[in-house]
């Protein structure tokens, strides 16, 4: 199967480029932006698993990102915990909270679910913003430690942090790939296509939706924890609805319900934002209409656009071969 092989080579090439970048460029600013993008991509994968593969758009995603970040921040800064245990605990805490919220949120459907999660996200933001005693309120949390060295592995330089985040990202992509292409993933997709039908062919929609929701909060929490340890300072704004909207744009532009979408969308929009820096706070003048037009004209984003084109070409080729064969048969 040549397509599978070429896919494999493309993937290896991309990973190689990602590994080589810090060695080829000494521009610390770009390395910083790229590392940050990787963190966003992880969060987008979480959102995509739930919205793209299971059909439930959660607008509380930044809230869970915030919970992950604050969990790491509070455990280390206020709890005096060292980095690694906190780093593993933070996504777990997010997941546990996600489980209980999901249990209730998933009783609602479609628009109700979106509105419900929008409100949950707002409540999380308000709690972080107003509960000064715990979170430091608008002043935020400072002095969050970054990853500490593991034995001989040095993790304190900018390059090392880049590789650390890249490793986590590759792990996440691998996990998502495995999940989506498994029977579990097929169950998610069946629910997205037609929930009633999925249930009538024996899929426990409640269990699968909850699993997808909890997984999505896990990835949000993981991304949040990475963010906190990378930026070292967090404020309530990271759980604001605007972050959810950013993640949504990354996902939709790249391609909702596709495996490559989160990477494509996030990198593209981040690069575009860098190019459009003169717009500063006005970048949504471009990204807002972009979001709306993509969802109207190419609902599965850039990745979906490519896939559609690819399958059409394949089908055409096949038809071509068939007609060729037919004409050959006719001649002889």
């Amino acid at each position: 199967m040549p397509t599978l092989l070429s896919k494999k080579y493309a993937l290896i090439a991309i990973i190689l480029v990602a590994i080589l970048i810090p060695l080829l460029s000494t521009n610390e600013y770009y390395l910083h932006i790229l590392t940050l993008s990787f963190i966003w991509i992880i969060a987008v994968y979480g959102l995509n698993l739930l919205a793209g593969f299971t059909g439930y758009l959660s607008l509380a995603h930044a809230g869970f990102f915030g919970i992950g970040a604050y969990a790491l921040g509070l455990l280390t800064v206020k709890g005096g915990m060292s980095f690694w245990p906190a780093f593993f605990l933070a996504p777990v805490i997010t997941t546990v909270i996600g489980f209980f919220i999901g249990l209730v949120a998933l009783r609602t459907k479609e628009h109700f679910f979106a509105i419900y999660t929008l409100c949950v996200g707002y409540i999380i933001y308000l709690v972080i913003d107003k509960w000064e005693g715990l979170t430091g309120g608008v002043r935020g949390l400072i002095g969050i430690p970054g990853p500490t060295n593991i034995g001989p592995i040095e993790l304190t330089s900018a390059n090392a942090r880049y590789y650390f985040v890249l490793t986590v990202l590759l792990l996440v992509v691998f996990l998502i790939y495995r999940i989506v292409n498994s029977l579990v993933g097929r169950s998610f997709i069946a629910i997205r296509n037609d929930e009633q039908l999925a249930q009538s062919i024996g899929i426990s929609t409640l269990k699968n939706k909850l699993m997808s929701f909890v997984l999505s909060t896990f990835f949000a929490g993981l991304a949040g924890a990475l963010y906190a340890s990378f930026i070292r300072f967090i404020g309530p704004d990271i759980s604001n609805i605007n972050i959810t909207f950013d993640l949504l744009i990354f996902m939709i532009v790249g391609g909702i319900g596709t495996l490559s979408g989160p990477v494509i969308g996030t990198l593209l929009i981040v690069v575009l934002s860098q190019q459009l820096q003169f717009l500063q706070d006005h970048r949504m003048l471009i990204f807002g209409p972009l979001l709306t037009s993509i969802i109207i004209f190419s609902p599965r984003g850039l990745a979906g656009m490519y896939l559609t084109w690819y399958y059409k070409r394949k089908a055409k080729k096949k038809a071509q071969i068939q007609t060729d064969n037919a004409s050959i048969g006719g001649d002889s």
Binding site: L175, R178, I179, S182, L183, V184, G185, R186, S187, I189, A190, A198, I201, G202, I203, M211, L215
Partner: peptide, 25 residues
Amino acid sequence: VGHRLRTKSNLFDAIFRTKRTKQEE
């Protein structure tokens, strides 16, 4: 996915691609 209900593979099987999940797929 129509035969999913007769299988037992869970998230763990999916992530580690266990023998069971391969057989069930």
